[in-house]
Amino acid sequence: MAEFVLYEDAFKRIDEELRRLYQLSNAKLVFLVDRNGQLIASVGETRNIDTTALASLTAGNIAATGGIAKLLGQKEFSILFHEGERDNIHISLVANKVILVVVFDQRSSLGLVRLRVKKSSQVLEQVFSELETRRPEKKVEEISPFADITDEDIEKLFG
């Protein structure tokens, strides 16, 4: 089964872009999730939030909406927006691969968030497309955690 491998340099660029988006959109929290619900990176007020659960539910949300889109003969709903009493959440698909989530309150606005998300999405798309094409050569340079893992290591984990 295919794996999604994220290397340090790509992670840094993603983190930088999320930070920029966080600042420029006056957001409370910005995070990136893969479509299977695994958290890739997050920036902002994450201390009191269970980001792992948030990531999984966001991916579930996108998956459910994608299912609805298909039933209606649409390819995808690429943006979701939920308005709350205090906080709002803007969810969008980037490069059809990852999900960009921005949580914001009255210090920002939907218009500003949409604008900044659009700009950041272009940068992130670039990072992910490079990651895809560069993967083969990087694979040789990096030492895989599985390269010399033994059955004993696996047993020990479950000991």
Partner: peptide, 15 residues
């Protein structure tokens, strides 16, 4: 699809 993150040194698997 497992997700291996070299920066945070994590392996994530879905069951």
């Amino acid at each position: 699809m497992s997700f291996i993150n070299y920066s945070t040194r994590e392996i994530n698997c879905k069951i």
